[in-house]
Design a protein around this nucleic acid. Structure first.
Lengths: 213, 213
DNA sequence: ACGGTTTGTAGTAATAGTTCGACATTCCAG
DNA sequence: CTGGAATGTCGAACTATTACTACAAACCGT
């Protein structure tokens, strides 16, 4: 009998996922966890075939979750279950060793497909992420399962500006601080946004928070 | 036979709610809507006893939703179903005429209780909101507890803008989303900054993260 | 019921920020 | 070594945002 661990903080979502799993995979044993500590506890206590993991789970929310899980159960299948806001980090989770990626706002059909596919092949990627992964693999090295820090792709000047922007300093004040024209700083800002594939300073601050250890 | 309309954009949540409703209220007819337009369409076509309404539903997301619903079905029971970020709007929606308020992260038990209670008495409030409503009614006396949530000092419109700003949306796009002049939104932004004593959106996002429990 | 305060909303004028194209430098893979 | 790509920098022409000011409607305390 298969066993699945569902780690997700919203009870209603957990309930939905659990119900669908039971519907699709019966006979199956489903265990639920509402935060990352609980997740780890369950992983320590018993083996699972599949882990459905919300990126935003309290106590988790970072790439190390993957290794923390793999440390306990090297062969478990990990399906990342992410909300809108995290979709840009999807690639990193896959590269960090997750086996699948599913978006929270996916239609019911896709959710079912993902669960079945994960149970059978151990792999599933939302179409969007799949193509993005391809692109990525084409450009960069291949098969390196390590998460890339997107901030490292920035040039020196760009990083300087990045940090100031992340503190909420205005373009104009940055230009004063660095003795540059406003337009120059603005150009860096655009290039940063483009390289990080974001579109506003809030996302930028979040990136910095996540990746500037 | 009771009939319920579930308006919520995430399929998985809709599925969970629908499943629970069927479990609790059988025999019952449940209809689902993924955005506000669809919601209105269903309301126009047939009568419902209960509407479970996600605040963040695409095409909705504002207090007028309540009147839009009441316009078609004056006696429908409206249960607001809100995510974290909106908890501070609870009061506004109740005051705007909703009959109940339930948080998305509520445990399954509470969700069930809310649905049954709504079906029976037509009223339900999450404990948190209930006490806050009391406080509100008890015209802010003294004996104020230490940690006051500064976000609560904002007016309704200000809070709406706040959340959008915290997502990194530009003043101009917010003005489009809310159908206001750019300058109006800018005025709100200034008032927010002043009330929260901050000076840029990064700090704003941080505040929201800290206080939007 | 009265008068101050807060809230929702804008307009005008001034300020800040973006786009895009440009150009010299510096890097880097073949 | 060499040519295309990445970097550092800017100006001109826009576009977006803010500062102030203003005013009606809602709210609130007494």
């Amino acid at each position: 009998m298969k066993s699945v661990l569902v780690s997700e903080d919203h009870a209603i979502v957990r309930f939905g996922i659990t119900t669908i799993i039971k519907d699709l995979l019966e006979p199956v044993k489903v265990v639920e966890a509402a935060d990352f500590d609980e997740t780890v506890r369950h992983l320590t206590e018993q083996p699972f075939d599949l882990l459905i993991l919300d990126i935003n789970i309290p106590g988790g929310n970072n790439l190390q979750m993957i290794s923390a899980v793999r440390l306990r159960q090297p062969n478990i299948r990990i399906l990342i279950f992410s909300g809108y806001d995290e979709q840009m980090f999807g690639i990193n989770y896959i590269q960090a060793g997750a086996d699948g990626y599913l978006e929270k706002h996916a239609p019911e059909e896709e959710i079912r497909r993902a669960i079945v596919t994960m149970a059978e092949n151990g792999k599933y990627l939302t179409p969007g992420i799949r193509t993005r992964l391809m692109d990525h693999a084409a450009h960069h090295g291949h098969g390196s399962r390590q998460p890339v820090n997107p901030l490292l792709g920035l040039s020196g000047r760009e990083k300087e500006v990045l940090l100031l922007l992340a503190k909420g300093i205005s373009v104009m004040n940055i230009s004063r601080a660095l003795n540059l024209q406003v337009t120059t700083v603005s150009t860096y800002k655009s290039r940063i946004f483009e390289k990080l594939n974001i579109s506003n300073v809030i996302e930028l601050a979040e990136m910095v928070r996540l990746y500037s250890n």
